[in-house]
Structure formats: C-alpha cells, structure tokens
C-alpha cells in the first residue's frame, strides 16, 4: 500500500503542483473579483442582486471542481493505460478490487483536499463581504458542483480503464450525464432536497469503475 502511494505520488506530484498553484491563483482572483464588485457597486445593490434576483456572485467557481476532477483523473489513469503500467501493478500480491479501490481512494482523497480548499475559499470570500446566511447558502449551492468534480474524476477513470471503444463511449455519456445533472440549475440552493440522488449516482460510478478495471485486465471481456 505504501509502495502504491509512493508510485502515485511520483506520478502525480507535478500535476498536483500545477493543480495546487492553479487553485491558489483562482482563490486570489476569486477574492479580488468579489472585492472589485463591492468597490464599483454599492453594497446594498449587490445584496439585492444576490438575495432577490438570485445572481450568483461566486458562479466563477462552478466549473473549477469539474475541470480539477477531470484533470486529476486523466493524470492518474492515462499513463496507467497508455503504457500498460496497470497490468504490471496487477501482478502485485493484491486483489484487483483492492488495487483499484486504493488508486481511487488516493485520487479521491487528493481531490477532496482540493475541493475542501475551494469550499474554504468560497466560505472565506463570501463571509468577508456577506453575513453568515449567505455563506451557508453559497456552500449548499456549491455542493452539486463539488459532486460534479468527483463525477468527473470517476468518469475519467471509467472511460480510460474501459478497453472497448463502444463501451468507452457509453461510459463517457454516463459521466457526462451525471455531471450535467449536477449543473442542471443556476438557482441558489436549488439542490437542497435533491443532492442525495446525485450522491447515489456518483456512488454507483465506483463499482462501475471496478468493472472497467476488470475488463481492462481481461482484455475487454467479462
């Protein structure tokens, strides 16, 4: 397990550095962008637009988790399937399920750290300019965007591990469908009562990825 973590670290460290820098830059820009709006517009008008018209001042964050999940998933699994490294790992004294779950666990753990950073930036920035109820609303509104990031990561694994082109296309449509459901509404708090269903769909992508890995090992059969 430790060796596997070291292998993933060596493979991903440059990508993680890039993702980390990108999110730091985004966080700084996000804060400055919000601050800029409060400098050029009366605060009371921004409150009105945010609360009554439903303008999302943090909408720039919407697709950041999605892009992060897709990049991390591709960075982790593309080299494995392009150079057949995963086949070598499959010879380790470790079951296929445990091996893939370990890969996914590491990837999801890293993604969770990045998404937690994004949520921290969101809460900190919104909280700097708006009272607490706006922060709670922003976090609830961003929750499906975070799920979209996880769906994009699992979708990348699902597509890349699948050896058959036709099934790969199906998996791409599945990942796209789940991500699209996470971005169905632009209204704040719209998913408050529906997020559980999205979580179930994203959860189903984990065993689906295990199946794609098994098919990869078996050369597209099974």
């Amino acid at each position: 397990m430790r060796a596997l973590a070291m292998k993933e670290w060596i493979k991903l460290r440059h990508w993680l550095g890039l993702i980390g820098l990108g999110h730091l830059a985004f966080g700084a820009w996000f804060y400055l962008s919000m601050r800029h709006q409060f400098r050029i517009e009366h605060a009371e008008m921004i409150y009105y637009q945010a609360n009554r018209i439903g303008r999302l001042f943090y909408d720039d964050l919407r697709y950041v988790p999605l892009a992060t999940g897709a990049v991390l998933g591709a960075a982790q699994f593309l080299p494995e399937v392009l150079r057949g490294r995963l086949r070598i790992a499959m010879h380790l004294p470790m079951g296929l399920g445990a091996l893939i779950l370990a890969h996914l666990g590491l990837g999801l753990g890293l993604l969770a750290v990045v998404l937690a950073f994004d949520l921290g930036i969101l809460a900190g920035t919104v909280g700097a300019f708006f009272p607490g109820p706006f922060v709670a609303s922003a976090l609830a509104t961003a929750a499906p965007w975070m799920l979209a990031g996880i769906a994009a990561y699992l979708g990348a694994a699902l597509v890349l591990l699948e050896p058959d082109r036709r099934t790969q296309a199906v998996n791409l449509a599945v990942a796209g469908g789940v991500v699209a459901l996470c971005h169905l509404s632009a209204a704040y708090n719209a998913y408050d009562g529906a997020i559980w269903g999205l979580a179930v769909l994203v959860g189903l992508m984990v065993p689906a990825t295990l199946r794609a890995a098994a098919r990869f090992r078996d050369g597209g059969t099974g």
Binding site: V170, V174, L201, L204, M205, V206, P207, A208
Partner: peptide, 9 residues
C-alpha cells in the same frame, strides 16, 4: 451497478 447507472440516466 453500471447497468443501474445507465438505466437511471
């Protein structure tokens, strides 16, 4: 799980 996912979508 995969069939259920495709069915739901």
């Amino acid at each position: 799980a995969q069939a259920l996912l495709v069915t739901a979508l």
